[in-house]
Design a protein around this nucleic acid. Structure first.
Length: 692
RNA sequence: GCCGCUGUAGCUCAGUGGUAGAGCGCACCCUUGGUAAGGGUGAGGUCGCGGGUUCAAAUCCCGCCAGCGGCUCCA
């Protein structure tokens, strides 16, 4: 007797073991047809799984109740599609050796070692997709079979793929007591792959699949190991879902900050200046400046002091901090003083020798700063400190330079020079909890004001097995506890990630996704016991002896570059009024109204509004179109009728219709008010209230 | 840094060895108009850079630079 509990609590009893499919059939034939997998006691499984003891069973169907594709069903489908793609690829390129092919959030990939004389090219995609479609059409069943570890290993070794042997060894090391294969059809006759599963019942379930792109990867992620080709693909139950997905990708591309940055003239990157170095054009500079002003006001409220420090410092400073030569490879080469530079040039000294001499202290030089903390530390240390003045909070929009690998650079989100909204808090050990808390609430204030709700919080803890961490384990425990508690108090979900801590202390990161799903770390709060030690920082305690303060590094935006990049995508380029580079554009209906338009524009500018007037010899329709193209929040259309009435006709970005007429005074004040309150009340609401 | 793809007008892109193209943008002219592009004329190019093959190269080959997608890295 097998008792099976369904999600709604019903219990079904069977005389002998049954498969999940048979249970589905016993409920209804339509369910059995729609089912693609099962969850047995919470574990995702094949529909053909035999249930031989009492268990909880949930059937997975293509779509959830509300008609959306089910995430777990897609997971099964894509895992299965990876097999089908692998089979197709091996047909197209004989000799391709499979390595590893997992499903992803929006598709799947397969890492494959191709013969050296026959790499895969994008031109092969069509042939692969054709084969995939053919395999799907054959509707072959995914058939699982198992072998004991010893026999299985022999089989794999005989087949001669070191990658599959390795996969099997890993499975065994992870505790598997048998190896499993999935044949796409009949074992022995059809294509098969060592695989843990689970899969959809048959290849016919793959309604639409597409090979998306090629990339390289390393075996085991190790750059010294074999180089593999990673083939990305995606699959859906229906062609319609695939088309919707591809359309969404197209739409996302339009929101890409690199595309919008050009279109809206927000920033420019120029080869002649250098890779990864952002030139903030006037419009982008406005957005950045507004954000800096905003955060500056928040900092003042929270008792920070603003400081200014230079962008270079002596090598010795960074030796003390540990940045040089420890992180030499990710820094710009040092600046050598004139005398030595000439000398070195004469001697034909290489860069390697040069930096060795610097490391040894033979030569003094300067470094473009990779971090702001050493300068702030020197301000803290510039006079004796009493416990009474702690915490000391020093803030600076500090520009730093890091030599990121060329392949990593990405628009504004990964650059070589960037400005952190940085601050360093020097506090008593017992103040760490409160200060971390204060930093987090600052980040939250800012995120809330900008409507950023889609983010995750990552608490980076040390990996206890690693030796890369500096400092007293007891301090680490305390700081980790403080971070955990502070993160928990935020009221948003957070994950604890061992191994993600900085070498000098635990941290809390705010991570957001860009339009193509890549994650970027923005705000960060990091506890640091290391630098106070290295710099010998002190304060006089109430016991009249010296003590060591604790440092907290924090940057709620992370960097202005990355933050604005992410923000461009967040708003799709349509910034809220207070951030918008051009807030109002006045559009005269004809040249006859140019003067009236100019006067209105002047009035707005006099009230601090970023307004312009479109005096081009275009019809108003064309002016509206170009204002929309630049995503200007408000357009004010003015013609003879408005001039007579002392009014303007208002349009708002994103609303494809005129809102209506407002007396000029009311419009100007409404715009000013909306800017001042950062959009918490909006001018458009007046029209909505009036039923427009 | 590694693998693959891409690089043509300010922007988006077409151009498979034989006189460098389109749309948008820009300038000027006509038009003076009422809510998502009126019409005309014109300017604008070292086809990423360097080398090679060829009677002839945007086009084929090699090297470099940059961008894109990943990998790896990320204080």
């Amino acid at each position: 007797m097998v008792k099976i509990t369904l999600p709604d609590g019903t219990v079904k009893e069977f005389e002998s073991p049954v498969t999940a499919y048979e249970v589905a059939e016993s409920i209804g034939s339509r369910l059995a047809k729609a089912a693609v997998g099962a969850k047995v006691d919470g574990v995702l499984s094949d529909l053909s799984t035999v249930l031989d003891s009492d268990c909880a069973l949930a059937l997975i169907t293509e779509k959830t109740r509300d008609g959306k594709p089910d995430a777990e069903a897609l997971f099964l489908l894509r895992h299965s599609a990876a097999h089908v793609m692998a089979e197709a690829i091996q047909r197209v390129v004989p000799g391709a050796m499979l390595v590893y092919g997992p499903p992803l959030e929006t598709g799947f990939y397969y890492d494959i070692a191709f013969p050296e004389d026959r790499p895969l090219r994008e031109g092969d995609f069509e042939a692969i997709e054709k084969e995939m479609a053919a395999i799907a059409k054959e509707d072959r069943a995914f058939t699982r079979y198992e072998m004991p570890v010893d026999d299985g290993m022999k089989k794999l070794e005989a087949e001669g793929s070191k990658y599959k042997v390795d996969n099997a060894q890993r499975a065994v090391a992870a505790g598997s007591d048998a190896l499993s294969w999935y044949a796409t059809g009949t074992p022995g006759d059809n294509w098969e792959d060592l695989c843990r599963g689970p899969h959809v019942p048959s290849t016919g379930r793959i309604g639409a699949a597409k090979v998306m792109s090629l990339a390289s990867s390393y075996w085991h992620g190790d750059e010294n190991s074999d180089r593999l080709t990673r083939v990305y693909g995606t699959a859906f139950f229906s062609k319609k879902d695939l088309d919707a997905h591809l359309h969404a990708l197209e739409e996302a591309k339009k929101r890409d900050h690199r595309v919008l940055g050009k279109q809206l003239e927000l920033f420019h990157i120029d080869d002649a200046v250098g890779q990864g170095l952002i030139l903030w054009t006037p419009r982008g500079a406005i957005v950045r400046k507004e954000l800096q002003t905003f955060i500056g006001a928040e900092l003042q409220k929270q008792g920070y002091f603003e400081v200014f420090t230079p962008q270079i410092g002596k090598l010795g400073l960074y030796k003390t901090s540990g940045h040089f030569p420890y992180y030499q490879e990710s820094q710009f080469p040092p600046l050598v003083d004139r005398e030595h530079l000439a000398m070195l040039a004469d001697e034909g000294c290489t860069c390697g020798q040069l930096s060795n001499s610097m490391g040894d202290g033979d030569i003094e030089g300067y470094m473009l700063r990779p971090m702001n903390c050493p300068h702030h530390i020197k301000i803290y240390a510039s006079k004796p400190r009493s416990y009474k003045e702690l915490p000391v909070r020093l803030a600076e929009f500090g520009t730093v330079y890091r030599w990121e690998q060329s392949g990593e650079l990405n628009g504004m989100t990964r650059v070589r020079g960037f400005t952190q909204d940085d601050a360093h808090l020097f506090c008593l050990p017992e103040q760490v909890g409160d200060e971390v808390q204060g930093c987090l609430s600052l980040v939250k204030t800012i995120f809330d004001a900008l409507g950023i709700t889609e983010y995750r919080v990552r608490v980076g803890l040390r990996d206890v097995d690693s030796s890369k961490y500096i400092g007293d384990p007891a301090n680490w425990d305390r700081a980790e506890a403080a971070c955990r508690a502070a993160a928990a108090s935020l009221g948003v979900p957070f994950t604890e990630e061992p191994g993600e801590a900085a070498f000098y202390g635990p941290k809390i990161d705010f991570v957001v996704k860009d339009v193509i799903g890549r994650e970027w770390q923005l705000g960060t709060v990091q506890v640091d016991y290391n630098l106070p030690e290295r710099f010998g920082l002190e304060y006089i305690g109430s016991d009249n002896t010296t003590h060591r303060p604790v440092m907290i590094h924090r940057a709620p935006f992370g960097s202005m570059e990355r933050f604005v990049g992410v923000l461009i995508e967040h708003f799709g380029g349509a910034f809220p009024l207070w951030l918008s580079p051009e807030q109002v554009r006045v559009l005269p209906v004809s040249e006859k109204s140019n003067e009236y338009a100019q006067a209105l524009c002047d009035r707005l500018v006099a009230r601090g509004v970023r307004a312009t007037v479109d005096l081009n010899n275009d019809r108003v329709q064309a002016k509206i179109k170009s204002a929309a193209r630049m995503k200007i929040p408000y357009s004010a259309v003015v013609g003879p009728r408005d001039e007579e009435a002392g009014a303007v006709n208002v349009r708002a970005f994103g609303i494809n219709d005129a809102l209506g007429s407002l007396p000029t005074d009311e419009f100007v004040e409404g715009v000013v008010a909306e800017i001042a309150c950062k959009g918490s009340t909006r001018l458009v609401e007046r029209f909505e209230a009036a039923g427009v």
